[in-house]
């Protein structure tokens, strides 16, 4: 299928008093039409920043220092970050859903005003038409009595309901790509599953692509076709969902997979965790950033700089020197 978004060598940095934080360092990724892509990593590994960079929503002290963001063949980096071209991309072509449904809606405006704002802004609908469309959209995402609830304020909605509203808003202009930044993290487990199913169904209906940013491998396992694993601002492994889960080729991916509890596990066995903390993004070593936490580290890792992504299988890339057999134990 055709590629709609291709990001090449993206670097996003934050200039702080302590030094330059390389939040995203030379990341390249692509999103195909009608595809669900997972972006997985720990907190602070650059997954959210990489997605906000695509929308050109990095504000001071952050800055995209290099890279190309090719959306439908056009480089978004050529546009001014807050110019009219970017504003017409945001929401209309690329939409976003955030982690915190409790704070993502403006508390002083009714749900209706917020959903219709999008329609009036991008599709130039009149108030009445927009209202009708808003009711349809809320109905579609499963909000009962949508017509009356349109006049409610966000605080009268539960977390799961608000997230549904956010999904409705995000999809209201039929965007090509929906970026969901940890959309289910703050919801309870039963609501999480419903919301993910809803998003999958909705992007199918709208022929959009979905980027699922998460730290939960369980979520991507079920929905994503391709996965990007990020660590310390870089993509350390990428491949099809199947390859990542069956044949992980980076020790970090293996570590993440071991962190997921399994129901068929032997009773009394302790759950593995990845020892240590992610590195300080200000003073990054030349060699592998995962080295201090890597249980398989070999001498070569300590001496040589971090390798680039290398092809290790069919559309499967990883950044590691270690012999895959070593990692199988």
């Amino acid at each position: 299928m055709a590629t709609i978004l291709e990001v090449k060598n993206l670097r996003t940095q934050f200039r702080t008093f302590a030094g330059v934080v390389k939040a995203v360092d030379d990341a390249s990724f692509r999103i195909d039409e009608q595809e669900i892509v997972g972006v997985v990593g720990e907190s602070g590994c650059g997954k959210s920043v990489s997605q906000l960079s695509v929308m050109r929503l990095i504000s001071r002290p952050g800055e995209i220092t290099s890279g190309q963001i090719l959306f439908e063949g056009q480089d978004l980096m050529k546009y001014e970050a807050n110019g009219p071209e970017m504003r017409s991309v945001r929401g209309a072509k690329i939409a976003m859903v955030f982690q915190e449904p409790m704070t993502s809606l403006n508390p002083v405006l009714t749900i209706g005003r917020q959903v219709t704002e999008m329609l009036e802004l991008h599709l130039r609908m009149t108030k009445d038409v927009a209202r009708g469309r808003a009711i349809e959209l809320l109905d579609m995402v499963g909000i009962p009595a949508a017509e009356t609830r349109l006049d409610d304020y966000p605080h009268q909605f539960s977390g799961g309901m608000r997230q549904r509203v956010m999904v409705a808003m995000a999809l209201s202009c039929n965007p090509r790509i929906l970026i969901a930044d940890e959309p289910t993290t703050s919801l309870d487990v039963t609501t999480q599953a419903q919301l993910l199913e809803l998003m999958k169904e909705m992007i199918g209906k709208f022929n959009s692509s979905l980027v699922l940013v998460t730290h939960n491998l369980g979520v991507v396992a079920r929905y994503a076709q391709r996965i990007y694993i990020m660590y310390a601002g870089r993509i350390v492994e990428t491949g099809s969902c199947k390859d990542i889960f069956r044949k992980p080729r980076h020790p970090y991916t293996i570590g993440l997979l071991r962190c997921v509890p399994r129901i068929d596990e032997q009773e009394g066995k302790t759950l593995d965790s990845i020892k240590g903390l992610p590195p300080d993004l200000i003073d990054m070593p030349r060699n592998c950033a995962f080295l201090p936490r890597c249980p398989y580290a070999i001498d070569r890792c300590r001496v040589e700089p971090w390798p680039d992504l290398e092809l290790v299988g069919d559309e499967h890339y990883a950044r590691c020197f270690i012999n895959p057999e070593e990692m199988q134990r």
Partner: peptide
């Protein structure tokens, strides 16, 4: 977050200031 959310849907500065920030 709703300010960031507003930016992601392409709300311009004036609208952002008057509709989303000032009332709050």
């Amino acid at each position: 977050d709703y300010i960031l959310a507003g930016r992601t849907i392409g709300v311009n500065h004036l609208r952002m200031m008057l509709r989303h920030i000032y009332p709050n």
